[in-house]
Design a protein around this nucleic acid. Structure first.
Lengths: 342, 342
DNA sequence: ATGAAAGCGCTAACAC
DNA sequence: GTGTTAGCGCTTTCAT
């Protein structure tokens, strides 16, 4: 299908009987153009189905109207949901989103070595993606605004949840129900510089401490992120002489895996053992999983807002922490023969 | 943090003691440059931490090295996984991905009216996104290659699964187990022009027909896509005087919702009723759901490959159908007191 | 309010 | 093999 030549601004100007300069001003809504002239130009543009050449426009203007979003995972709900939030507000603001998946270490090295987004964007948002000092130095070369979502950051504006508090909400729920032998399945992302979910772990020890309960090292198992890993971890816990009556998992996926192991072992949830996760993944509702909800998409939206404000020169919030909330469903209950604490 | 001025090609050329033309040729790997010269240029570029200005380069070259990926959903696993596949091969080929989320009808209208990606990309891939005739006409204005993934398409190269066959695999499994009263929960996407999963429905009727079983209209319920909707549908099925012994759901999420309803009704799966889904969503494994697997990320990859081939002028495959596969897990079993068919 | 002209940073003919 | 020279299509002073 031949689509002819895309018409250029010169065509529009000619058709409207004005100079390119005027046509440009009219189309960009710049001041200093007579209303009637502006209309004539718009009409001409319309008739020619004209669209600016972004390359040319940006070359001349020096700005790209594009922002890079860097994600360590695309298909995991958490990241995808956050991405959806970011994309929404960016798109609404007329900014294009350039997506960069930086999965494993190799991707990562490559990304920061080559800086593929360099000169291509006006800002970059990193999603749940810790950026070390070396990487920060590389980013500096880009000379654009950076904002982080889904994790605190010392250097950049960020939006995140209070992981320790989320963990406390989960642990406190278990403690409130009367559990005293609580295990933790800590999940780490093998491709990430760890330390991301430190808060989730801290919460465990702090909660136990505050409740005057002892810490049993055997009850803590750390695994790579993922449902299958959660299952493995649970198997390990079940092999203890004195298994836990409740399990605090760092994420819903891990919790799901744990539940599968429990069921396969013939145990029932929550009668025999309670399980709680974090995140409120969409399937949590479908499987009646008790969890701590964090507003994921919202975090993305806020990050997007910050970018938009930054680019428009407005004062943007420096960093935001959004609240989390316990969602009690069907996988937690008091331990057998115990009564809830007042 | 001042980052000085980005150095330009002129700087590199000067530093290497050559003309801009030579510098450009050297950097682009064009032929006709002495090896030693090329090295000198590379060195200079390195020292100046030089990166081309994509805008300028593209303006001059007339190509963008960008491709738009249009998705109706970002945070649903299916779409995100496919996106991950596409992004991977595009990135590897040095193409940038511009992401456009076209969710509801309004987004849709806006997208095709304004054609925000126009002049910004060399190709667009539409993910599981039916494009009607009007929209095709709009796309034509862009004058670039279009490829579809996750659904057949009359006009564009596409990659998809055979939905009817997938459905047959699910239905045949249920029939093989000896079920005769099989319900179907058909899921449609409220924001899509339907007809997408027609094949999944066709399979139901065809399988029943081939098995010589009657069709009972009451056993077919169509709902909007989603786990919650699946649950509602199941509730409806359970209110029948003569409920089904097995349920064929159009997707795993829907199947999950159905299972929740079943459990809440005090029924057990698969003892009382069997449930099968389609897709093999990651959580399917965690909840022991029997399903029909489709290679989602792979479809994205193939679509990406097609784009890359198209852009490089190579002959690209016109369209690809990838195979699906039954995955038997724990939510299906023979009906009570029945024996499997030979 | 409008126009002329000088770039923006690079690539591609076309000479040498 | 390398340099010269035109653009690529737009924005933006600076005049008028």
């Amino acid at each position: 299908m031949s689509n002819g030549r895309q018409s250029s601004m010169a065509d529009v100007a000619q058709r409207a009987g004005v100079s390119m300069a005027t046509a440009s001003r009219a189309l960009n809504g710049s001041p200093g153009v007579a209303e009637t002239t502006r209309e004539r130009v718009f009409l001409a543009a319309q008739e020619l189905a004209y669209v600016v050449s972004p390359e040319a426009s940006r070359l001349a203007r020096g700005t790209t109207r594009r922002v890079a979003v860097v994600v360590p995972h695309i298909s995991r709900w958490f990241f995808a949901a956050m991405l959806e939030g970011v994309e929404g507000v960016l798109r609404e603001a007329g900014l294009d989103v350039l997506l960069y998946h930086v999965g494993d270490c190799e991707d990562r090295r490559d990304f920061f070595d080559r800086l593929p987004a360099r000169r291509k964007v006006d800002a970059v948002v990193v999603l749940a993606f810790p950026v070390d000092e070396h990487e920060q130095r590389r980013f500096q070369l880009m000379g654009v605004d950076i904002v982080a979502a889904g994790g605190q950051h010392a250097t950049y504006p960020y939006v995140c949840i209070d992981d320790e508090q989320a963990g406390r909400q989960a642990m406190d729920h278990l403690l409130f129900l009367g559990h005293e032998r609580i295990a933790m399945i800590a999940a780490v992302d093998p491709d990430q510089p760890a330390a991301l979910q430190q808060g989730r772990s801290d919460a465990y020890y702090a909660a136990l401490g505050d409740a005057g309960l002892p810490v049993d090292g055997q009850l803590v198992v750390t695994v790579d992120w993922g449902g299958a890993e959660g299952a493995t971890a649970m198997d390990r816990l079940l092999s203890l002489r004195n298994p836990p009556t409740a399990v605090y998992a760092h994420s819903d996926e891990v919790a799901l895996g744990a539940i599968r192991s429990l069921r396969r072992a013939g145990l029932s949830v929550p009668e025999d053992v309670s399980v709680i996760g974090i995140d409120d993944h969409p399937v949590a509702e479908l499987v009646d999983l008790t969890t701590v909800r964090q507003p994921v998409e919202v975090q993305g939206e806020i990050a997007g807002r910050i970018v938009v404000d930054l680019l428009s020169g407005q004062a943007a919030q420096k960093s935001v922490t959004v609240p989390t909330q316990l969602v009690v469903r069907g996988t937690t209950a008091p331990p057998r023969g115990a009564r809830q604490r007042a």
